[in-house]
Design a protein around this nucleic acid. Sequence first.
DNA 1: GCCGTTTTCGGCCCGACTGTTTTCAGTCG
Length: 569
Amino acid sequence: MNKKIVIKTLEKIALYLELQGENPFKVSAFRKAANALELDERSLSEIDDITKLKGIGKGTAAVINELIETGESSQLKELEDAVPKGLIPLLKLPGLGGKKLAKLYSELGIDSAESLRAACEAKEIQKLAGFGPKSEEKILKELEQLGNRSERLPIWYLQQIVIDIEELLKTIPEVQKFSVAGSFRRVNEMSKDIDFIVATEQPEKIKEQLLEELSVKEVVAAGDTKISVVLDIEDVVNVDFRLVSLAEFATALHHFTGSKDHNVRMRQLAKEQGKKISEYGVEQPDGTVLTFDSEEQFFAHFNLPFIPPTVRESGKELERLDELNNLVTLEAIVSDLHMHTTWSDGAHTVKEMGEALIKRGYTHGVITDHSQYLKVANGLTPERLEKQRLEIYSFNEAHPNFRLFAGTEMDILPNATLDFEDDVLKELDFVIASIHSSFSQPQEKIMERLYTAIQNPYVHMIAHPTGRIIGQRDGYNPDIPQLIKWAAQFGKILELNASPYRLDLCIEHLMMAMEYNVPIAINTDAHAIEQLLFMEIGTKYAQKAWVKKDLVVNTWSVKQFETFIQQNK
DNA sequence: GCCGTTTTCGGCCCGACTGTTTTCAGTCG
């Protein structure tokens, strides 16, 4: 029995129980059990006594064991018989939860979007206790939008909106301090909405200005401390603003940064000490409420080091405190090993890119323009590559305290050959190989291409190994565990491409690479100077996978880097 | 449903907002 199926089944049971209006704690017990399984690294067969896992007891273990033995769950079957499937999508309607849907089903027999709409139109809903004309109206309105509303939006799309809102907040004089929070601050690939914390003494003024200045499609809530709006940009985006006092800012920021599981863990910890955490501060055993100047101080109050937002996920981060010091940070980065110039499809010259790297405080970098196969990107022939190399070396002469290396981002061709001969490659300092074509080949062919590249003695790194674009395309579906093993075998680097469109390798694969001690290079793949900023998102993303600083090639000194690349010659 | 030696029962993170009420339940994050 596959673990994923067990997890899915437990979650499904939770969903159906919720639709029956069951005790919310019982519902969440099934979700917790699913979560406990997910967080445990072992496969099902490796776990001898499942009830030893925290969160799995007699009831949920019975479900799991039945699944293992028979492949089915009788409890789920019973639930499926008792609760119509059509109710499940209705849980997505804002304002309708399990209890209300259970009531609609038991009193009016509502079991689908269609019957719900009919009941609204017949004005049956408002007759029920707990419902009224407004609920009915709202349900009708939400039904119209069901399916239209985008579920989760990718980080590269939300980033621009966040920047725009930040610019707006800077112009409002009554704003004392602000920060984005939520999953965006934790650098999740996708987020359902954007959260902002704003410190102010005049919430009503802020509310006024925000509602006026933003392109608001719909106001979901507008209270004294919380404003929730739907913005109408290309896609509709939910944005929540929490208005707090300056004193409350740090705890509010922590609270609304989450994750939910992290907060639960923190609150348990507080409770063990007789304290109580809320967004407004930490209530002491004697009832007084402490506030903090920063999140650092908040954590210090619980004798914890600062836990970066990026790793605040499952709550397990509280057991990995000694690893926090080994996390890669932006400050530790001294190089960028993948960028383009006007020689191929970049916007800036070698000199401009080099100087931008110096300005960022780096000690070295590699220019890696596309190779000849990529005609649309003006890829370089061996002849042009040689000319470019001279330009790079003359840049180095003019900048003695910085080192620019000559490289290439060479295409791995559809027929599993490389775009340059070995005698061209051996002249280069650093060789990146990557796939930009024929994504839909079968996996064996893709792996044959990658193998050709990774076993070549002159190739140092495989860039954006899967070719995915977050939320848009999956890439070329390589067998990443195999690629990681090859990287370990041949001593090659794998890239974490820091472009917010890519973030490739993904977290799961980065973790796998860590197990095999495969070095990772976090690279911006910048096609313009401004994109060198992607390094920040890249390092934060790497933190989410607990990537160790020492295994990040960009933290290595020029000397260390040179030693590494010369081994491959 | 799960958990626990200060508990085998009574908690389960906590609070805002809304729409329904006339003091609160449900939903949401």
